[in-house]
């Protein structure tokens, strides 16, 4: 019955010592959508991400992947199912080369990841595929650089390539354009659009311009609950959403003023 949803939550709740960060959220992510999760700061977006991928234990509720509960699985098992997440802060392996970053993601299905007696050159057979992935995000000429030397925007592109190497069915991107200059934002937006072909994406995003350009479904979260759902136009016209955003912006103005 819920097969059309790749990912679904039912009454998902997370409490931290009496504070309810995520409050009985019912989220449904449809196959093939680029689904945005937006909301003011502290709305529980990242917490929700952490629950979906079990980086945090859930207090109540259920998470379904293609109709089957994954609430009791480990993070690594969920990743192996094809639900692969990225992180708010660029998640790369800083002292490995760009190529090695992608290769680590390709390596696991080879089944030799515990083979401590084999030489690492057996991994070279993955180089071609790794290069193809790097090419798809425009990083092929940086393949041999140590990752820490890359500028921020390229690190995020690398992160995307690494995530794609997992061949995920659904990608959870946590603020993929955060902290980027305008030029980088456009490039990453394009990359996400390309990556979305044949996949489902759920992304937390603050940049509403990116959301309006990219996403065909938007869920608005405020204080841990869903306050609106729909396409960008209908959601942005919703008075509750306006209030949540204006309220928080007014607060921020007060903070900067004081």
């Amino acid at each position: 019955m819920s097969q059309e949803f790749v990912l679904e939550t039912r009454g998902l709740t997370k409490e931290f010592r009496g504070f309810t960060a995520v409050d009985s959220v019912n989220l449904q992510v449809k196959e093939g959508n680029i689904h945005a999760l937006i909301g003011p700061n502290g709305a529980g977006k990242t917490t929700l991400f952490n629950l979906l991928t079990k980086y945090l234990p859930i207090t109540r509720g259920d998470i379904l992947y293609r109709g089957k509960s994954i609430a009791k699985m480990k993070s690594s098992e969920i990743a192996r199912l094809g639900v692969v997440r990225s992180f708010q802060i660029s998640a790369v392996f800083p002292h490995m080369t760009v190529l090695e970053n992608v290769r680590v993601a390709l390596q696991r299905p080879m089944g030799n990841s515990f083979h401590f007696w084999k030489h690492e050159k057996v991994l070279n057979q993955l180089n071609d595929r790794a290069m193809d992935l790097l090419e798809s995000v425009g990083l092929e000429e940086y393949a041999d650089n140590i990752t820490v030397e890359l500028p921020y925007g390229r690190k995020r592109a690398l992160e995307l390539a690494t995530t794609l190497a997992m061949e995920p069915t659904i990608m959870l991107l946590d603020e993929p354009t955060q902290g980027m200059g305008l030029e980088d934002v456009d490039r990453v937006t394009e990359l996400i659009r390309k990556a979305a072909v044949g996949r489902t994406i759920l992304m937390v995003e603050h940049n509403l311009r990116v959301v309006s350009k990219l996403c065909n479904q938007v869920t608005v979260l405020a204080r841990g609950t869903v306050i609106a759902e729909g396409d960008y136009a209908s959601v942005s016209a919703n008075p509750q959403v306006k209030e949540a955003y204006m309220g928080s912006e007014a607060d921020e103005e007060q903070e900067t003023a004081s």
Binding site: F93, R108, S113, F116, E120
Partner: peptide, 24 residues
């Protein structure tokens, strides 16, 4: 310098990310 060593390195560099790539 083995495939295992590569994973160890990844874990040392960024453990949550290694988990998100499916490594236990």
């Amino acid at each position: 310098h083995s495939p295992f060593g590569q994973v160890l390195k990844a874990i040392r560099e960024n453990e949550p990310r290694a988990t998100s790539l499916g490594y236990n």
